[in-house]
Design a protein around this nucleic acid. Structure first.
Lengths: 113, 113
DNA sequence: TTGACGCATGCCGATATAGGAATATGATGG
DNA sequence: CCATCATATTCCTATATCGGCATGCGTCAA
C-alpha cells in the first residue's frame, strides 16, 4: 500500500506547503483561483488542484461569483489538528511544573488515538 | 515531482496515522521498538521505519539500553504545528466577537507563510 | 564462540501523489 | 450563436512513499 490519500484526511491535506500558504492567504478573505495562483507563484491548474484537495477535506468552500469562483476559508477542520498537537503542549511549555496533571492524564491518553 | 519527503517536514511526518499513534504512546514514557509494535498491532520492521521518520524530523529520540533501544518523545517539533493551526483559531472559536483583533491582524498575516 | 534476541535495513510491489502541458467545461458579453 | 475569460480536468512522468519479507548487525548470556 502507498501513502494514505490526502483527500481523506486533514493532516495530509496540510502536509503540503503550498496548501498551507493558500489557507493563510484565505484568512484575509475570499479570492478567485487566478489571484491565488498569482500571489503564490503557481500555475492556475496547480492552484485548482490544491484547492480541490482542500475542498474535499472541507477546509475551503467555493462560491460562484459570475465568471469567477471565489474560494473561502472554512478552518473548522483545523481544530482537531490544533487540539491533537495541544495534547503535547506540556512537553514544550516550561518545565514539568505541571507534573501532577501530567501523571493524572496518563490513563486517558492510553485511550486516545 | 512527487510529494515532498516526509523526512524533512514535521507536517508530513505526522500525516501518517500510525506515526501519530506512536507519538501518543510515547507520551507516557520511553518504549522499546517491539513493545510499540505490539501495542499498535504493526510489524517490528514497520515500527522501525516509522520511528526512523519520526527521529529524522526530531520528534523522537533513541537511547540504547542493552539489547534494546528505547524511543522517547521529543515533542518540541509539534509546537510549530500547534501554533500554525492556532493562527486559525478565531475561525472556529465562537463567533466573531473578536472581530477587532481580527481586522487588526490582517496586515501581519499577509507576511506569514 | 555460539545462539538467541532486538532492531535496522534492503528489496519488492502497488499506489498516490505533485507538476507541467494541453484541453475540456462554464459562464459572460455582444 | 460566438468569442473570451476563468476554472477544472485529463494525460503523462518522476518520485516518494507504505507494507511485507528476508536478512544483516549488534548485544548479551551460556
Amino acid at each position: 500500500m502507498a501513502r494514505a490519500a490526502t483527500t481523506s484526511d486533514v493532516f495530509n491535506a496540510i502536509a503540503e506547503p503550498q496548501r498551507r500558504q493558500i489557507l493563510v492567504l484565505l484568512r484575509s478573505g475570499e479570492r478567485p483561483v487566478t489571484e491565488l495562483a498569482r500571489e503564490l507563484g503557481m500555475t492556475q491548474p496547480g492552484a485548482s488542484k490544491h484547492l480541490r484537495v482542500l475542498r474535499e477535506v472541507g477546509l475551503v468552500r467555493d462560491r460562484k461569483a459570475g465568471k469567477q469562483r471565489l474560494y473561502g476559508l472554512d478552518a473548522r477542520g483545523l481544530r482537531p489538528v490544533h487540539e491533537w498537537t495541544g495534547g503535547f503542549e506540556r512537553f514544550w511549555s516550561g518545565s514539568f511544573d505541571r507534573l501532577d496533571a501530567y501523571v493524572q492524564d496518563l490513563k486517558q491518553e492510553r485511550q486516545e488515538e
